[in-house]
Design a binder for these strands. Structure first.
Length: 565
DNA sequence: TAAATAGGTT
């Protein structure tokens, strides 16, 4: 009876009401079991109640002791889990001390709860000590330690623990895959997933959500599609989580229509589902559609949060809707009580600057209640480049260099601006500055998926086993497209080198290597999809050659962080 | 008892 009553509670207030009734009746709290059930109900409802406090659980424990009852193997773990949920460090420490006094600290359940607790409060050394000294451990003990390392971003420790585990389960593998993802190592995440299929347990929906996110980051459409059909053939229900991950994957892999039809079919959506779809539409230039969806979302009763507003502002940027952007930006505070964050100012500066409203953008920067970051100045500078305002660009660059003295991007941008306005002496000066500072341009990196495998190319890359064939294919392409009227667009190559060398430098851009490789590795008529870390250079984007016309180039800045392959 | 999704860019 008690358990039924408590398991129906979804909010901590309801638990408290039942608790009060128990205490006043004086009857129902007669056993350890009832105390445990209450503690558990508090934990279960804590995440849905922002006002939940660890202090709520302790009177139950004190009550138990006063009655002369002895905590069983569940009592202290339940109490501790409550502390973990609320990141209540001091309460948790006192539970640990109590357990030692009661001699319960050798229990397996408690050891696991302690490892989890110390992991979430980021005391990994304490967690490790418990794991190493515990009399009994199981796979959960190791998983808790593993997720502790992963939460802290310590992938190396996680890997070495993982490699040494004698028993693993689906949680172990899912945690590792999501850990790789969080660390920006999507390719490792996918590799781990194939290993899991060969030697690990069956994946479940939580595993697949992470795998889909990895596919999204890598533009691995074929693998993403494979997961989708895996879901269908295994009768796995498409939850809100899975559906959202699928929509994101399709959108990031360039398949907005597929993403949209999935979105329409989803019976249950949450704020993330909407935001993902809005962002997906905006990313592909469907700014107007994205904004329509944003208002439909509001009409459907979903209150946009700060991330949803980024999506909406981003849609305005892509569609050049300055007035709507201003309106949305103002309504954030006025209608929703959300203070614009740095990111929102960044979007607005981008929107204004891109559309030539450089002074308004500068004014907005001055009005910001916080210090503008490099992205804000970068957006202004990009606008200056587009609208050839060298003076304001120089002003922005001073701020940028102060904020990011070691970032090569700033200097490259400045050099770009000088070069495109014909001031080659200044551009050369910047280049020298970069050389003396030993800064290197972030290498362009393109990925192409052939037969379910991802191939990576860096600019000027000669590491690929087929590099000779790739380069001769490019020569063939180049001679053909030159006949069609292709003229290398050398403004992307700013270096002060002669024309022939410029052509050579262009020819080795990573996207060209990837396209040439894809053309020799696929059947005629097959679509080619290239994903790139930087914006695709305008020369590479010319689509004079009919075969390249099929190539879909998706710039993806997120890949910037992948540098270890 | 342990694991999951969205976010502005040169």
């Amino acid at each position: 009876m008690t358990r039924d009553l408590l398991s129906r509670c979804s909010h901590s207030k309801q638990v408290k009401q039942i608790q009060a009734r128990f205490v006043t009746s004086g009857l129902l709290l007669a056993s350890v079991f009832h105390h445990n059930a209450l503690l558990r109900a508090h934990s279960r409802t804590a995440s849905a109640s922002p006002s939940a406090s660890p202090a709520a659980a302790f009177p139950i424990y004190t009550h138990l002791l006063r009655r002369g009852l002895r905590p069983d193997s569940y009592t202290l773990p339940f109490l501790l889990n409550f502390c973990s949920l609320l990141l209540a460090r001091y309460h948790g420490l006192s539970v640990h001390a109590h357990a030692i006094r009661l001699g319960r600290d050798a229990d397996l359940f408690l050891a696991n709860a302690l490892i989890h607790f110390y992991s979430v409060v980021r005391d990994l050394a304490a967690a490790r000590r418990i794991l190493d000294l515990a009399s009994f451990t199981d796979v959960v003990s190791y998983n808790s330690m593993l997720t502790g390392y992963l939460r802290a971003g310590d992938l190396d420790s996680a890997w070495s623990l993982f490699d040494g585990m004698s028993e693993t389960n689906v949680v172990t593998w899912s945690a590792m895959i999501s850990g790789c993802l969080q660390g920006g190592r999507s390719k490792e995440a996918l590799a781990l997933f194939s290993r899991m299929q060969a030697e690990g347990p069956e994946p479940n929906d939580m595993t697949l959500v992470s795998v889909l996110a990895a596919c999204a980051h890598l533009g691995a459409l074929e693998q993403g599609k494979w997961i989708h059909s895996y879901l269908r053939s295994n009768g796995i229900k498409i939850s809100v989580f899975l559906g959202t991950a699928l929509i994101d994957m399709y959108a990031k892999c360039g398949q907005v229509q597929l993403a949209l039809s999935l979105f329409d079919e989803m019976p249950e959506k949450n704020l993330l589902t909407w935001t993902t779809m809005i962002k997906g539409l905006a990313m592909h230039g469907n700014g107007v559609e994205a904004l329509q969806l944003f208002s439909v979302m509001g009409a459907s009763g979903f209150v946009p949060d700060d991330v949803a507003f980024i999506g909406a502002l981003c849609a305005c940027t892509h569609a050049g809707l300055v007035d709507q952007g201003r309106e949305i930006f103002d309504s954030m505070r006025k209608d929703y009580g959300i203070e614009p964050k740095l990111e929102h100012y960044g979007c607005m500066v981008d929107l204004l600057a891109r559309n030539g409203l450089l002074e308004e953008a500068q004014g907005l920067i001055k009005s910001m209640p916080m210090e503008p970051d490099a992205l804000v100045w970068g957006a202004l500078m990009a606008g200056c480049k587009l609208h050839r305002n060298v003076e304001l660009a120089e002003h922005s660059v001073k701020h940028l260099i102060k904020l990011e003295p070691d970032s090569s991007g700033v200097y490259v941008l400045l050099a770009n601006i000088y070069a495109s306005s014909g001031r080659h002496d200044k551009a050369r000066e910047v280049r020298c500055m970069m050389r003396t500072k030993r800064l290197q341009k972030t290498p362009g990196c393109s990925l192409v998926e052939i037969g379910g495998r991802i191939h990576q190319f860096l600019v000027g890359d000669i590491a690929h086993p087929l590099i000779k064939d790739i380069l001769s294919k490019w020569e063939e392409i180049e001679s053909l497209i030159k006949l069609e009227g292709y003229v290398p667009d050398k403004k992307e190559v700013l270096l002060n080198i002669d024309d022939e060398e410029k052509e050579d430098a262009l020819a080795r851009h990573s996207e060209k290597l990837a396209i040439a490789f894809a053309l020799i590795s696929t059947e005629e008529g097959m679509p080619i999809r290239v994903v790139k870390n930087l914006r695709v250079c305008s020369d590479c984007h010319q689509d004079l050659f009919p075969e390249i016309h099929h190539a879909l180039l998706i710039p993806q800045w997120k890949l910037n962080s992948i540098s270890f392959w």
